[in-house]
Design a protein around this nucleic acid. Structure first.
Lengths: 336, 336
DNA sequence: TTGAAAGCGCTAACAA
DNA sequence: TTGTTAGCGCTTTCAA
């Protein structure tokens, strides 16, 4: 498996190494004649450029680190897909890693990426503690965060407007006639979730509703946890006509618990989610939800990062995109 | 953003480059005393090893190429997740790419990975044409395929037993009393799908059933296509009591069309899938299906690849894993 | 238009 | 135990 190098090509074409390099890079300082000859020899010898060697001298790998909490999560995998497609179109490849929402592993991965000389890093923070943990490295490489977990930090990030999204959700349910709305799955250990809960509270205050919460005591969000939480909630008297779940996965858990408890959605209870993961559009699920525009988040994250890299910018930028509401069939209008 | 090199450390610790290198690599040919001093200086200077430079000399990047048709597909993203986790545990990172089921793009990506000097490649082939297209590169790098699309080729692959899985599905439905089973979504442009259809036909023959097909005329499988196909199928008279869908995504499409057509699952029609993607376990979906053990596929693919890399094996191996049936609630027993 | 030579940051012989 | 040196494959001055 010994591979063909520029040297081999040079010898075979009886030119110098630099001439081969010039032919390959499309440099103008070479005659059309020799370029053709060199390129022909490259073909014959099955020459493939060694990007690693090139990286060393040009001081750029055209590699981007993508650190997610888990690709095995529909929101993240969609993000990863779009980031890869767009990065490739611009001549970059992606090194993918999963932090499993573990701050220490995230730090390790960040350092690893640094060692691999990636040109930049896109990171979905494991949690609000990520900033402190990553701080020592942040000045050393262009990076962009996805989500609002690091919004207090002087670093670039792109996120959906979580606060506004939650407000929109409440307003929507209000318009449908709901006056008693339970906010389901509030979590304290995430800025994103804090913002959603705040948006909910703010809209309630404005509309004269009394906020009601069902707190998520688990460390993360999942269908399973949502199910357990909802099961517990359904064992008590229901003082609400609608549930606003903090995430779609939570909502899915609610749906499952409702199914078991014989509570019909939307006939007996309206259910609104947040994120619009792929599962929510499935037949029989048809969850009405607040959409995070994933493709747009991916685009902006990438643009922001490449802009930093290519223009060697040192400042930071905060980009917030608007959520939209996706109406499906888990919410219904009720009479007062 | 000028980074600290081994040279800087050497100077600061007043030793030679090689001593620093030795301290870092945990070599035994160095005194404990100097090692500690060097390591301390590394800390102080925030030294991070330049993996790219190291790769050049050790002729190994500890990077693996992972070429999928699309991470934005629950089966693939789960695979990607497990491959990443296990690769990292063994000191490797993953460069992720999406071929979008495009053979030409797949070829480009393969070549790109070669140029990036990855130590090996795991690839989920775009289609049966992939082998011919990739052939020129195959001898140049250890690689493993996922799925049976390249089963005729003298290359390593790991796959679930698609033929057997389909047989199992038919046997299961037969045991429930079904005698008229429609095979839904047969596709010709994929060996995997051909094998599933063959397994279905074989079991039917053995059990004395008449095979019935609903062919997928689209180039790939998705909920949308499944829905369109099923809508068409439901406009005609139903001569079957059960549908065996070639994939879970197809089954989900069937479910949606059934919902609209007022056909109840499983009361009016039993539905069986293949793959066991995450969506299938969702509340209200509860699709009974043939499981592909994704974590195991990931493990075996990685083991096979690393084995090839580390032992410089040149042969190939075929690993077929057994499918299992996951009973949920989309199939019911009927009386003859 | 071409070639020679230096050097990117690291490891690995070989010498001391 | 440590240092010196060469070299991985490439690009990029600088000279010819």
């Amino acid at each position: 498996m010994k591979s063909v190098t520029i040297k081999d090509v040079a010898k075979a074409a009886s030119v110098s190494n630099s001439t081969v390099s010039r032919a390959l890079s499309g440099s103008p300082e070479i005659s059309e004649e020799t370029r053709e000859r060199v390129l022909r020899v490259c073909k014959e010898l099955n020459y493939t450029v060694n990007t690693v060697a090139r990286s060393m001298v040009v001081r750029s790998t055209r590699l981007l680190g993508l650190i997610l909490t888990s690709v095995n999560n529909p929101f993240m995998s969609e993000l990863a897909y779009h980031i890869d497609r767009q990065a490739r179109a611009r001549g970059y490849n992606i090194i993918l890693c999963n932090s499993s929402r573990d701050t220490e592993m995230e730090r390790e991965l960040f350092e690893l990426m640094l060692g691999r000389q990636v040109d930049g890093i896109i990171l979905a923070p494991a949690g609000p503690g990520s900033y402190e943990s990553l701080r020592p490295y942040l000045g050393r490489i262009p990076s962009v965060f996805i989500g609002e977990n690091l919004r207090e930090a002087p670093e670039s990030y792109v996120s959906v407007d979580n606060f506004r999204g939650a407000e929109m959700g409440v307003e929507y349910l209000y318009r449908l006639g709901h006056r008693n709305i339970l906010y389901f799955g509030r979590r304290r250990n995430s800025v994103t979730h804090q913002l959603r809960a705040d948006g909910y509270a703010s809209a309630c205050a404005r509309l004269g509703l009394t906020p009601m919460y069902c707190n998520n005591t688990f460390s993360s969000t999942s269908i399973k946890y949502g199910y357990q939480l909802a099961k517990q909630a359904f064992s008590e008297e229901r003082k609400y006509t609608a549930i606003f779940a903090s995430t779609d996965t939570n909502a899915l858990g609610v749906m499952q618990a409702a199914e078991e408890a014989g509570i019909r959605i939307p006939e007996d209870l309206s259910l609104l989610g947040f994120d619009n993961i792929r599962d929510s559009s499935l037949p029989r699920i048809e969850l009405t939800t607040i959409e995070q525009p994933k493709k747009m988040l991916a685009s902006i994250a990438l643009d922001t990062l490449l802009d930093k890299i290519q223009n060697e910018l040192s400042g930071y930028s905060h980009r917030i995109v608007s959520p939209t509401i996706i109406e499906r069939s888990s919410c219904r209008a009720i009479k007062q």
